[in-house]
Amino acid sequence: MSPDSPATRVIGVHLVLVEDGRVLLGRRRNTSFAEDQWHTPAGHLEEDESVLRAMAREAWEELGITIAEDDLVLLHALHHLDADDGRGRLQLFFRPLRYRGRVANREPEKCHELRWWPLGDGLPRDTVPYTAHALARIAEGSAVSAVGWPG
């Protein structure tokens, strides 16, 4: 990339669904990233799609719940330098004010199971590291962080 070119980033959207102090995580499977680790319901921004639309789409595709774009609140922005491929990724973590439907695992080919975990110190040790980082910052009330970048 030339010094005059704007940086391009991969943008991820993550759903932070919390009920009774517990956050919903799924155990990944048959994916190219973080096999058998716990992660928030998430996906990537597609061409010609807003981050709000992407989050609402992913909630429907993965969990079968409907979230209005106006009902999404940005909790945390994480600027993550991926050690595997060296790409900068902007990870956006959203909380829905409300949603319709019952949470279900609609992608069993990509997710072993869904489970509710205590938000904060109660996450499983095999949670995706940047996800655990972001959820800890959310529990602290922090709106933005960065991981993986040199000093």
Rank of each mutant, 00 (worst) to 15 (best):
Arg102Glu: 13
Pro108Asp: 00
Ala104Pro: 14
Arg9Lys: 07
Leu72Gly: 01
Ala68Leu: 14
Glu107Arg: 15
Arg87Thr: 03
His133Ser: 09
Gln91Asp: 08
Leu119Ala: 08
Trp38Phe: 10
Asp82Leu: 00
Arg89Ser: 11
Thr127Gln: 13
Arg27Ala: 01
Phe33Arg: 14
Asp84Arg: 14
His133Leu: 11
Ala59Leu: 02
Asp70Trp: 04
His133Arg: 08
Val13Asn: 02
Met55Glu: 10
Asp70Met: 09
Leu81Glu: 01
Ala56His: 03
Thr40Tyr: 04
Leu52Asp: 12
Leu92Ile: 11
Ala68Gln: 15
Leu123Asp: 02
Leu90Val: 09
Arg28Thr: 07
Glu69Phe: 05
Arg102Val: 04
Ala77Ile: 07
Glu113Ile: 00
Ala42Gly: 14
Val128Glu: 07
Arg89Leu: 09
Val51Ala: 10
Asp82Phe: 00
Asp70Pro: 09
Leu24Met: 00
Val13Leu: 01
Glu69Val: 13
Val18Asn: 06
Val10Phe: 09
Leu81Gln: 11
Pro96Ile: 12
His79Asn: 13
Leu81Arg: 15
Leu90Ala: 13
Asp121Thr: 14
Glu62Arg: 14
Pro96Ala: 13
Leu97Asp: 11
Arg102Trp: 04
Leu92Glu: 02
Pro96Gln: 06
Val16Phe: 02
Arg102Thr: 10
Asp70Cys: 07
Arg27Ser: 03
Pro129Asp: 10
Leu63Gly: 04
Thr127Asn: 08
Ser50Trp: 12
Glu46Val: 10
Glu49Gln: 15
Trp60Glu: 14
Glu109Thr: 13
Phe33Glu: 06
Leu72Trp: 01
Gln37Asn: 04
Val10Ala: 09
Thr127Glu: 01
Ala59Arg: 12
